[in-house]
Computed example of a mutant assay.
Amino acid sequence: MTVTLYHNRACGTSRNVLAMIRAAGIEPVVVEYLKTPPTRADLDVLASRLVVPVRDLLRQRGTPYAELGLDNPALSDADLLDAIAAHPELLNRPVVMTDQAARPCRPKETLFDILPQAHGA
C-alpha cells in the first residue's frame, strides 16, 4: 500500500501525523506541498479518494481564502481544486492519501479513519 502525506514540516500536527504513520511501520511518500505544489491532476486524484467533501481540503487561516471568495457555497469542487492548485497554501494540512481513501488529518486522530493500523502504533 502506498501512503502519501501532503506535509508542512512547520506544522506540529503534520509532524505528528508523519510520526504516527512511521510508528505503524509505513514509510510514506512525503510531499512538501509548499515546496513542490501538487498539480491539478494530482489534486484530481486526491479528490477522487476523499472521504470528506472537497471543501474540507481548504485552509482558511493565514491564506487568501476570504480574498478569493472561497466562502461562496456555489463554488464547484473544480473551482476549489483550481484555487488550491493556484495557491497551495490553501491546502489544509496534513492530508493523507492511501490507495483507497484520502482525508485531511486535523486533528491527528482522524488518521485512524483511513489508516487503522496506525492506531496501535
Rank of each mutant, 00 (worst) to 15 (best):
Y6H: 09
G69Y: 02
D56F: 11
V3F: 07
E89P: 01
T63C: 06
E32N: 14
T2P: 13
T13Y: 07
N16K: 12
A102I: 09
I21P: 13
M1Q: 09
D113N: 03
Q60G: 14
L5Y: 04
E89G: 09
R55C: 01
L43H: 09
L91F: 05
D79K: 03
E32H: 12
L75N: 01
D44M: 07
D56I: 00
A66S: 13
V51Y: 01
V54H: 12
A101M: 11
Q117C: 02
T13M: 05
Q60M: 14
N8W: 03
A41Y: 02
P94R: 03
D44E: 15
L91P: 07
L75S: 03
H7A: 07
T39Q: 03
T4Y: 08
A19N: 10
R103M: 15
P73V: 03
E32W: 04
L81C: 05
V96Q: 06
E27I: 10
R61M: 10
V95L: 04
A85E: 15
H87M: 06
P107T: 09
A66M: 08
R15F: 01
L43E: 08
R55S: 11
L111M: 01
N16E: 10
L111V: 03
Y65H: 14
R103W: 10
D79A: 13
L46T: 02
I26R: 04
H87Y: 13
I21Y: 06
N8E: 02
E32R: 12
P94Q: 05
V54T: 14
A47P: 05
V17T: 14
R103Y: 11
F112E: 01
T2S: 14
A83L: 06
V51D: 13
H7S: 05
P28F: 04
G62T: 09
R103A: 14
P88N: 11
L90Y: 07
Y6V: 02
D99Q: 09
I26N: 07
L5N: 06
A47G: 07
L57Q: 08
V96R: 08
L57I: 10
A23M: 06
G120M: 06
C105A: 13
R59A: 08
R40I: 14
L68K: 07
A121F: 01
R93E: 10
H87A: 03
R61A: 15
R61K: 15
L91C: 11
L81S: 05
K108P: 10
L34P: 07
L111N: 00
S76R: 02
E27M: 07
E27P: 08
Y33W: 11
E27V: 14
N8S: 11
P37V: 05
D77Q: 02
H119I: 00
E32Q: 12
Y65R: 03
N16P: 00
R59K: 14
T36K: 12
A19E: 12
L46K: 02
A118L: 01
